[in-house]
Each structure stands twice: as structure tokens, then as C-alpha cells.
Design a protein around this nucleic acid. Structure first.
Length: 424
RNA sequence: GGAGAGGUGGCCGAGUGGACGAAGGCGCACGCCUGGAAAGUGUGUAUGCGGUUUGAAGCUGCAUCGUGGGUUCGAAUCCCACUCUCUCCGCCA
């Protein structure tokens, strides 16, 4: 969430920047400021009364100690009324504070200056393309190939769980594991620390990274214990730093994690989601960085090149998009999407999303740091990126590397798979 | 699931109604000492929200001892509820 300070001090700027995200903030900002004014007003009232109360209490204590019981009695009689007033001011204060909290979380993060306005996908700017789209002699979509070679079985998944929960079999399972290991090793070499987090998180964590309250319906919820199944490792990995005050020497923080991800994808089932394109459970390696504000865009570039490099190593045709205002998520300031070309489907598939959240998540998380020369704590910047999401990479590999004889394994993965082809 | 114990600052730990944002220790920072270091020694060392201020510093108010409520003029301390952690038993990979 945005800081109240920013909203107050740069009202016009906030409203204008949010227009880029197609968000009309004018009314909301007014409400927020009015609410904050009231909050302050009642805090002053409450604090003053409490100060009076504290003074009287001290006095009473002293009078009792001196044995002046009568005078103490007199003082005591004064307290009742003040107490009432405190309660009243406190109630107002708390209500305004609550209202403020509920309003301020409705404002999206401000887009970075480089983000252009736009409605959605079509307005995203392609900033780079790489790799070569293969010319295939045979061209079957992956949902046919996985059946031909019996490497992923959707029907079995439906039987034991439901749609969107595929079962990986034999070389399909091994290829999956190979990709995970490849991604983890790459991240480790790039200086990321591997974390193996819980797959279930509590409510506070869901709130910390912004999944709650707005995306509640997108997460699987374990009712008995009030846990949520993580939609991405971003949630546990970033929440490691919830309520933390870092010191300057802790930077940069670079963590990564493999995890299964669970998404209900309620209401988003349609024509483009066949096969591996959209799943309820999938695997992903996520990279997360926590940086000082002045370094975060440098870190974003670093993460961008890092992801690109993996795609190059896998030999997949890819492109990099700078998302337009309409497509940048609620929490992000700047996002680059990576897409790979799925040859048989003749579609670009999103396989990674790399974002700088600036201090938007940190403000929710209360993730701060203290610099040497300043006494005040400052909010850190958080960034994350998929590196990478497996199913669509799997789909692209299966389709792009298909031959009459079978599916060729990209060379870089062969040490991990132990085989160089999937055939019948 | 059953029984018990407990949650105090970065950490350990004292504190059973007022002088407690909190003793003492460790750690950390800065200074003294030293040729340099260690040892020793001195000082400092929580967070949030307000006020003052152009801003910062400074000064200042309020709140915070797991969370929420209650008793009281006054609560870390007493009462209630919740929650989390630990130990033992049971079950189990």
C-alpha cells in the first residue's frame, strides 16, 4: 500500500500517476485525506486527555503516599468525566483509523515513469525478441504429444483430484524434476540463497504480500486451521521479512525457492487454457530480492537479464514485454513479462513476470531498514520474478523440440534428465 | 487429541499495583586507554502515531511487556477470553 505521507504530500502526482493504470483515484484520495485529518484530530484530543489523566493519576499516587487521603479522594472524583471523554475520543480515533486502513489499501501502486498507459495486453511494449522459432516438419500441440508419449496424464489427475491437476509420468516427471533442478542451480550460481518454504501460510502472510483481502477467492483455503495454500513462493519468501528491520549491511538480500503453486483460477477458465496453459497446481522457481530503494531498479535489470539468460540456455524463442499501465498488477510499479513461443499453438505463452514493487509491499509487510547515518527507519524495496514457471516451459519444449522420432531434450537439461529424447 | 509450563527490548533475563519504556547481563555503536589490538573503562543503543519545524535534527505528547477485553485514579504486574511456543503422554511419516 502507498504511504499516507506520499498521498498527503503529493496528492496531484498520485492521482495523475494512477491514471496510467486506468485508476481514477481523485475521490478516493480526497476521502483518504479527510479521514486522515479526522484521525489526527482525534488522536490529538485523545492524547491530550490521556496526558491529563496520567498527571492526575500520578498526583493521586503522591497524595496517597503522603497520607493525604482526602485530597486524593477529591482528585479521584475528577477522573470519571475525563475517562468518558477519553473513551469517546478513542472510539472516534479508532474508527477513523480503521476506515483509513480500509481505504488506503484500495489504492494501487504507482507505476514507474517508464510505464505507458494502455488498456491491456495489446498495449504492452515488446522491448526485445530472441531465439529462433523452429520450422517443424510435424506440429502437434502439446496436449496431443503428452498423450502420444504418455508423459503427462490429465484424465488421471481428474480422477484423483480434478481438472487442472495433471499427473506427470515417467520421463515427463523426470523432465519436470530436471527443469526444477536446472532452475535452482542457475539461481544459486547467480547468488540466490535457496529456501524451501512451507506451502501453507497463515492469514498475516497472505495480507503481507497483498493476496488478501482482494484475491481471497483465488487461493485454496484450509478451513480447519485457517491456512492458505500458496499461489506462489513469493508469499512465504517475502513474508520471511515481515515485521523486520534490516540493517544496511544486510543488503542485498537475494532468495529463491522452488515450490508447488496452487491457484483456484476461479472464473478464468476459457478457450485459451487447454493442456498445460493453465493449471490449479503447478511448479515454479521464484526469485525474490530485497533492496535499498536506490538500488532496486538496478536489481530489476539484473533479474531481467537473469531470466532472459535461462531462456537463451533452453534455446526457446522468447520475447520481453514492458507491461502497460493497464496490465501492470495492482502491487507492481514496473513489470517485465517473458513469453516463449509455443510453435504448435502458434501462441506466445507467459512464463515469467519480473516486477519491482518498490515500497508498496514493504509498507504492508513493515519491512524496513536502518541506515547508518539516519535514525529514522525507511521502507525497503521488494522485487520478485518467476525463474521460471514450469508448465508453459514444458509445453514450449514439448512442442518446439518435437520431431518424427520424438521430443528432443535441450542440451542444457540432459545432465539433469539423463536422457536426450522422449520417444515411444 | 490429553496434561502441564510459559510468552518482557536484537538476544538472555529481573520485575506480583504508582517512582517501569522497563534492573542486570550479552551483543552492537562511538570514545578513552594502546605502537596496534585484546583486556579494561565511559557513553549511547526499541518501535509506531501525533505536535513543534519549510524539511531534518532537536524538543515534546500518546501508545506499545503475545492479542483482545475487563477491574482500578493508576496494570508488564490482578481477572476473563483468545492465540502462539515449549515439555510429557497418545497417534503417526
Amino acid at each position: 500500500m502507498l504511504t499516507i505521507k506520499l498521498i498527503r504530500e503529493q496528492q496531484e502526482y498520485v492521482i495523475n500517476r494512477l491514471k496510467i493504470k486506468n485508476f481514477d483515484a481523485a475521490n478516493l484520495v480526497d476521502k483518504i485525506i479527510a479521514c486522515d485529518d479526522n484521525r489526527k484530530k482525534y488522536q490529538q484530543k485523545k492524547d491530550n486527555l490521556q496526558m491529563q489523566m496520567n498527571e492526575i493519576s500520578k498526583e493521586i499516587g503522591n497524595l496517597f503516599a503522603q497520607g493525604k487521603k482526602d485530597e486524593a479522594e477529591v482528585a479521584r472524583r475528577k477522573t470519571g468525566e475525563i475517562k468518558e471523554q477519553i473513551k469517546e475520543a478513542e472510539t472516534f480515533f479508532e474508527n477513523y483509523e480503521k476506515e483509513l486502513d480500509s481505504l488506503i489499501v484500495l489504492l494501487p501502486n504507482l507505476p514507474h515513469e517508464s510505464v505507458k498507459s494502455g488498456k491491456g495486453e495489446i498495449d504492452n511494449e515488446i522491448i526485445k525478441e530472441g531465439g529462433v522459432i523452429p520450422k517443424l516438419t510435424v506440429s502437434k500441440p502439446h496436449w496431443e504429444l503428452i498423450k502420444d508419449y504418455n508423459i503427462i496424464d490429465f484424465e488421471l489427475g481428474i480422477k484423483i483430484t480434478g481438472a487442472g491437476f495433471p499427473v506427470y509420468i515417467g520421463k515427463g516427471a523426470k523432465l519436470q524434476r530436471a527443469l526444477i533442478n536446472f532452475f535452482l542451480d542457475e539461481a544459486e550460481n547467480a547468488g540466490y540463497t535457496e529456501i524451501l518454504p512451507p506451502l501453507l501460510v497463515n492469514e498475516e502472510s497472505g495480507f503481507g504480500t497483498g493476496q488478501l483481502p482482494d484475491k481471497e477467492g483465488q487461493m485454496y483455503h484450509v478451513n480447519a486451521d485457517n491456512f492458505y495454500l500458496i499461489p506462489t513462493a513469493e508469499v512465504p519468501i517475502t513474508n520471511l521479512y515481515r515485521d523486520v528491520i534490516l540493517s544496511e549491511t544486510d543488503f542485498p538480500i537475494k532468495n529463491m525457492a522452488y515450490s508447488a503453486c496452487f491457484r483456484r483460477e476461479a472464473g478464468s477458465w476459457g478457450a485459451d487454457v487447454r493442456g498445460l496453459n493453465r493449471l490449479h497446481q503447478f511448479d515454479k522457481v521464484e526469485i525474490v530480492q530485497i533492496r535499498k530503494p536506490e538500488e532496486s531498479y538496478h536489481a530489476l535489470e539484473e533479474m531481467k537479464s537473469y531470466v532472459e539468460n535461462i531462456l537463451v540456455k533452453l534455446g526457446l524463442p522468447y520475447r520481453v514485454l514492458r507491461l502497460c499501465g493497464g496490465d501492470v498488477s495492482f502491487t507492481a510499479a514496473l513489470t517485465f513479462d517473458f513469453e516463449v513461443f509455443s510453435t504448435a499453438q502458434e501462441r506466445w505463452l507467459e512464463v515469467s513476470s519480473v516486477s519491482n514493487f518498490e515500497d508498496f509491499q514493504a509498507n504492508r509487510l513493515k519491512l524496513r531498514y536502518k541506515s547508518k547515518d539516519e535514525k529514522r527507519t525507511k521502507l525497503a524495496h521488494t522485487l520478485n520474478g518467476s525463474a521460471l514457471a514450469l508448465p508453459r516451459i514444458m509445453a514450449a519444449i514439448i512442442e518446439n523440440y518435437q520431431t518424427e522420432e520424438g521430443i528432443i531434450i535441450p542440451e542444457i537439461l540432459r545432465p539433469f534428465t539423463g536422457f536426450d529424447m522422449i520417444s515411444k
